[in-house]
Design a protein around this nucleic acid. Structure first.
Lengths: 134, 134
DNA sequence: ATAGGGTCTGTAGCGACTACAGGGTCAAGG
DNA sequence: CCTTGACCCTGTAGTCGCTACAGACCCTAT
């Protein structure tokens, strides 16, 4: 029932430094300490860290995670706030996907234009700059 | 034929600070100066900056840009180096696309599981953490 | 003469960590 | 009992690619 920071790290696949960092920025509460000043975590902290990790894996920013945590702490509160954050994040992910797909297409075209040979004739270089890069 | 940093900025849609930053990290050469110590660019620098911008827009890292520039400077050199960098980058973009698509799918599932109501019953919160986040 | 733009240097900040340096602590084996 | 190695502590600085100042100088137009 009592975990060291190393236990927390293994259980959530989060680096020790990252856990300390989360504590420093107030995302995790300051835990109890053992007599030898080691951090001493309980089940609640492990749950909270799991939550943070999972949200981060889904691409939420630390600010979004903070908001999710604060809403989720108030169990009687309306679900709409959570939903709004998640949906806004989904839109952002969709935008990124579209951007990346467009970029990929262009990059592929640049690569395909090259059929070997010396740099002076290279189509990739040509495609990258309008004027001659010295 | 002589450009101020503002001209360069407008011509390449790059912020002035960014241009100075590129100079600081050695991506752009230190330009000539006017009598009043203003940076004084020529056509070559404009070309080089355009090249950098374009490569950055295609998602190359500054280190990759540096490599592309150094290879492209040697006009007689083999095209293969350029090709390798570009192809490696394409792979990276594909990995990112796959990751982002997987993330999107999961995020969508989490969002769809919620049908409103109070936080205590919220499926989004549930989906995010195995234990109760305090 | 002054107002407004531009430019200069240098430094600090962003997000989300990551990597030390330089120490203290603890359990197991010789 | 002592040592070895794994763990933990704090604090600071580095990463990437910029961005945003602060406090100064310069140039043109009115």
């Amino acid at each position: 029932m009592a975990f060291t920071i190393g236990d927390m790290s293994k259980a959530t696949a989060t680096k020790i430094e990252t856990i300390r960092y989360y504590e420093k920025i107030g995302l995790l509460p300051k835990p109890a300490r053992t007599t030898s000043n080691y951090r001493d975590y309980g089940q609640a902290e492990l749950g909270r860290l799991s939550f943070i990790r999972r949200a981060r894996d889904l691409g939420f920013s630390l600010d979004q995670v903070r908001a999710l945590l604060s809403i989720s702490g108030d169990r009687s509160c309306d679900c709409a706030g959570i939903d709004a954050i998640a949906k806004e994040h989904l839109l952002e992910v969709d935008r990124k996907l579209a951007d990346l797909a467009a970029l990929r297409k262009e990059l592929k075209a640049v690569i395909d234009s090259c059929d070997g040979g010396i740099v002076a004739d290279c189509r990739i270089i040509e495609a990258l700059g309008p004027a001659s890069p010295s």
